[in-house]
Simulated assay, not measured.
Amino acid sequence: MQHLQLGQEVNAKFSWKPLTNNGVTFINNGATHDSGYTPQNFKMIVNNSISGNVVQITYDNLQHSSYGDQKITKIIAIVHDVVKKAQTGNVDFWNNPFNRFWYEEISDITIDYHFYLANGQEVNFDPKLSDAWITAGSLNSGGGRTEAVKLESAGKAYGFYKSSVTAHNGNELYADGSNERNTTESAFGKGIIVPIPQGEWWDNPATGLRSKNAYYGAGVFKVEGKGVSLHYKVYGKPNQWESIWANLDTTMPKSNSGIVTPTIHYHHTNVALGLEINLIS
């Protein structure tokens, strides 16, 4: 079952600390992508690709996040190893961690998230006690480019039933084919493989992962241990580095109300044992 909840934290206290001055500029309240999310934000302008740590972001005074019966009151995020693909790259962050971040003209960016209880103890996601699932959504693919996210900490990636996004070697989630209406191919030269669901568009910014069709562009990580490290990446043509919305969410996409816990089905074949996660609707 899902025991990790990351809620809307509109009253979060937000601070950030540069960890390098090499090739990066920080602008307080300079976010330009959907900056109406929250009044507090900052923009990171990346002038050169950066190896190592770039900035530490602290989200404090959290009131709507928990793991089991324990309240999560603080998140510390370490941004590191950023690869730009144009003259300059941009990354926007907001004080509400639920709003995640946007990155533009950047092919790779990794963020290590650490979660803390009120007593200052770091949360340890122990699968023997309580499961913790993090959903990666809005993974667009088309026009010669494909968005991906890879779990680099302990845990495992899974795909949702009938999603265009599948789990690949190394716990990486992305769509092999296109999942866009008016584009022809993914970064891997493939068109639509899994049919796009009818009705509400799956990548609706107004409803996010609460949309009944959001599963089509999403996958999920079962995370373990202390800290969650996510490597966000874009595969594709050099001229297709658009603005990317990256998310950190614990909502399970579903076709009805409430969070739905995925059921894991084991399929035996002559070659290997496959894992598939089905949505319960």
Results as ranks from 00 to 15, higher is better:
residue 123 V to L: 07
residue 243 S to T: 14
residue 14 F to M: 05
residue 20 T to H: 02
residue 170 G to M: 10
residue 51 S to P: 04
residue 159 G to S: 09
residue 69 D to V: 09
residue 70 Q to F: 07
residue 55 V to A: 10
residue 215 Y to I: 01
residue 80 H to P: 02
residue 95 N to I: 03
residue 114 H to G: 07
residue 89 G to I: 10
residue 7 G to D: 07
residue 268 H to M: 13
residue 127 P to F: 09
residue 119 N to P: 02
residue 27 I to P: 01
residue 155 G to Q: 01
residue 74 K to H: 03
residue 51 S to G: 15
residue 3 H to S: 14
residue 55 V to E: 07
residue 133 W to G: 02
residue 121 Q to I: 08
residue 244 I to V: 15
residue 106 I to W: 01
residue 227 G to I: 06
residue 56 Q to W: 04
residue 24 V to Q: 01
residue 202 W to H: 11
residue 156 K to W: 00
residue 44 M to L: 13
residue 64 H to Y: 10
residue 253 P to H: 02
residue 42 F to R: 03
residue 54 V to F: 03
residue 165 V to Y: 00
residue 196 I to C: 05
residue 241 W to R: 13
residue 66 S to T: 02
residue 213 N to A: 06
residue 190 K to D: 05
residue 228 V to P: 00
residue 245 W to G: 04
residue 191 G to Q: 09
residue 255 S to H: 08
residue 82 V to G: 03
residue 141 S to G: 11
residue 72 I to L: 11
residue 271 V to H: 11
residue 212 K to P: 13
residue 277 I to W: 01
residue 237 K to F: 11
residue 47 N to C: 05
residue 181 R to W: 13
residue 19 L to Y: 04
residue 11 N to V: 09
residue 76 I to A: 07
residue 113 Y to C: 02
residue 279 L to A: 07
residue 275 L to R: 00
residue 168 H to F: 01
residue 10 V to H: 11
residue 158 Y to E: 00
residue 201 W to I: 07
residue 19 L to P: 03
residue 281 S to Q: 14
residue 143 G to I: 08
residue 183 T to H: 15
residue 208 G to P: 05
residue 246 A to H: 02
residue 226 K to D: 05
residue 3 H to N: 15
residue 91 V to Q: 13
residue 244 I to H: 09
residue 130 S to T: 13
residue 172 E to H: 00
residue 199 G to S: 04
residue 186 S to P: 10
residue 35 S to R: 12
residue 185 E to W: 07
residue 212 K to W: 05
residue 61 N to I: 05
residue 83 V to Q: 14
residue 41 N to R: 06
residue 204 N to D: 14
residue 48 N to E: 15
residue 247 N to W: 00
